[in-house]
Write a protein that binds this DNA or RNA. Structure first.
Lengths: 154, 154
DNA sequence: TTTATAAAAGATAAAAAGGTCTTAATATAT
DNA sequence: ATATATTAAGACCTTTTTATCTTTTATAAA
């Protein structure tokens, strides 16, 4: 019922890519890592895995970097989590009981269950772009620095 | 927004003590560890800390073990969590953002917040015995083995 | 008062998570 | 073609969490 730091980084940085799809530029690990304040070698590892999992795309070389294809843009946040943490982690009982369901619930099962459904639903049903658009439309800024000054340098 | 395994063990085993308050017998680490299927040296360490934190009580020697005084029985689940994990862990943003509140929310803030309030409320406002009674009255059995056969041996 | 029993204390070890570094591969621009 | 920028791959390191082991201390029963 909780995300690893790795998953969180992966979600935030993929949302970052989503926010910048319109820029039609590839973005390097370094830029993203600095923007969302994450250790860049660690993020690089995560990105390797996300590329393998076809969640994001990359090209090497000058002006290379990471980006989202049309196909990538249809992935959900849950796809990211699944790719990094697997799904077990999210389905575990809040109190760690091995058997925990409606017929044999842990003490907080009926508090946790609606929340879990709600958040998993959101993570499953909205694709990356919709998720990103919702953030923007609600004026909910991720605590990511604005990328534009970096681009301007070139 | 998530408990360590240590906290989970601590909660379950304290609830176990609560369920057996009426038996008026002290219970050893070994019995509890086997009942809730937790490594007993690890639980022993946790219990040391819970005793120091005055969440539970202990006596050494023959027929010694752990138990809840009247005062212990008034502690909340949140007291246990605070004693083992501290409170920070529960208050962290679901996506790991350093700044995340109503005025600068992360993408899932408004899903997570009501849940967090609900579960923290429950953990804060119910004391151990009330919590335990609720479990029993709802027929929600923890996946703890029944202790009675162990007692019968003596 | 001796002995058995159980927790306390503290050192140590193993596993998992998080993070870094180095080298290789590859795409692009010149 | 070559130099350069960038990801890919994989080995390695560090920290935190989880777990164990050994010795000491306290209690209570016989």
């Amino acid at each position: 019922m909780m995300l690893s730091r790795a998953s969180k980084y992966a979600i935030l940085s993929t949302l970052f890519l989503a926010e910048h799809v319109k820029d039609k530029k590839k973005i390097s690990v370094k830029v993203i890592a600095e923007s969302i304040d994450v250790p860049s070698p660690f993020l690089a590892k995560l990105f390797q895995q996300l590329v393998k999992g076809k969640i994001i795309s990359s090209t090497k070389g000058p002006n290379g970097g990471f980006y989202l294809t049309k196909s990538n843009q249809k992935k959900s946040v849950l796809d990211i989590i699944e790719n990094i943490d697997g799904l077990n982690r999210l389905n575990e009982c809040f109190l760690g009981l091995s058997e925990c369901d409606g017929s044999n619930p842990c003490p907080v099962h009926f508090i946790v269950e609606p929340f879990k459904n709600s958040i998993l639903g959101k993570f499953r049903d909205k694709n990356i772009m919709e998720f990103s658009e919702e953030i923007v439309s609600h004026g909910r800024k991720l605590s990511l620095k604005d990328l534009s000054p970096e681009f301007d340098k070139k």
